[in-house]
Computed example of a mutant assay.
Amino acid sequence: MTVTPKGKTNKARGEETREKLVQVGLKLFALNGFNGVSMRNLASVAEVNLATVGYHFGGKMGLYEAVLRDIIKRKDLVFPDIDTVRFQMNRLKKGEISKCDIFSWFYRKIVLGMIGTEDTVYAALIIDRELVAPSEHYELLDKEFFSHSMGTMEELLEFIMDGKVSREEIMIISTCLIGMALKFVNPKVLMDRVGWDGYTAERVEEVTEILCRRAVAFVGCEES
């Protein structure tokens, strides 16, 4: 039997409204920054009563925290999880794949996790804003997102560099690689220079391929 919207329970309607506000908040905070978004603006775009934001989240900061937690929940869509990376490292040990293969796979996941879809672009824009001007919730993002994700990248880099590079250099390389990908989240400068109207699937693939190829060269694991 089909359940009509009128047949939804109050709890189901509340969860639906809450999710809608998180998605609206993701977009508005990404495009305008925290201070550039008002409660009235959030309510208007989400098509809900102004009091609804406060009811579900206690206010704008509560909604922003919920947006960050939603980004954290999906971090494995941006960074390969550590178990998957270690599985690929074991394949490298067995000679099933090359250093070029594993790092290209890893970095491709990151780039597409940032620019692959509209939602991932919004999430990456918020991450970029937090790195430039940390909010009061930066520590949450650092602990639950950055520490895990950067730690995974650093473990992989140490492995493919055979432990011959200092930890400080590994951390600098990791930061450079993330910064390189984040530069393509807001592609206006690129679009203006190359004459593109925007990202298409083909252009996302082109950017990703170039970035992966250059990242492999940057970390020094090209095939001989």
Rank of each mutant, 00 (worst) to 15 (best):
C221E: 05
R74T: 12
A43V: 05
A66K: 08
F146C: 09
R86F: 06
S224F: 14
K73L: 15
W105Y: 11
N35W: 05
I71M: 10
R18T: 15
P80M: 14
M191D: 02
Y107R: 07
L141Y: 05
L31W: 10
A66F: 07
G14K: 05
K183F: 12
N41T: 12
T17K: 10
Q88N: 14
E16S: 10
D119N: 10
N90G: 08
Q23D: 08
R129A: 05
F87M: 13
D76W: 10
K20D: 02
A12C: 02
V24L: 15
V37H: 03
K75D: 08
E154M: 10
M114D: 02
V207L: 09
V85Q: 09
E223S: 09
F146G: 02
L31V: 12
T117S: 03
P134Y: 06
D162T: 10
R108M: 05
P5C: 07
E202Y: 01
W105I: 10
G59P: 13
L157W: 05
E223G: 06
S166W: 09
D197P: 02
V37G: 07
I170T: 08
F57H: 07
K11I: 14
R167A: 13
G116H: 02
S44C: 11
G151L: 10
A123N: 11
I110F: 04
V216N: 01
E130H: 05
L141P: 12
E136D: 15
E136N: 14
G54T: 11
K188F: 01
A12Q: 12
L211C: 02
A201V: 03
I210S: 06
D101M: 06
C212S: 01
L140Q: 04
G163K: 06
G62S: 07
